[in-house]
């Protein structure tokens, strides 16, 4: 019920009604962008944005920096473990 799916804004359909065309895994559909625009980020600047779409509304702009930070942390965790395993093995 609360699920969302990532999509990319490809076109502004109606800047007054805040409707945009969003590409969701190759399927394009109209999506309301009222929740992700403000004076600092007006509709015209939304083209190309990755957003999380829930029941036809873009509910959040996906923060790529945060996504990469989370993934980097997980990668480091794996690497640290490999290193520890290697140290333990060399002590053998």
């Amino acid at each position: 019920m609360c699920l969302g799916i990532p999509g990319q804004i490809v076109e502004i359909i109606d800047a007054d009604d805040l409707m945009a065309k969003v590409d969701i895994a190759g399927v394009q559909r109209p999506v309301n962008i009222g929740c992700i625009v403000d004076a600092a980020h007006p509709p015209a600047q939304c083209i190309g944005d990755w957003v999380l779409v829930h029941v036809g509304f873009a509910m959040s702009r996906i923060d790529e920096d945060e996504a990469h930070k989370t993934l980097a942390l997980l990668t480091e965790l794996g690497e640290a473990q490999e290193e520890l395993a290697a140290i333990k093995a060399s002590k053998g």
Binding site: M59, S60, D63, A67, K69, T70
Partner: peptide, 18 residues
């Protein structure tokens, strides 16, 4: 907040206001 790529700490002001 593990889901920081989608969840801003203040939530969604426009959504809350609606």
């Amino acid at each position: 907040n593990q889901y920081s790529r989608v969840v801003p700490s203040g939530g969604n002001p426009a959504g809350l206001s609606a």
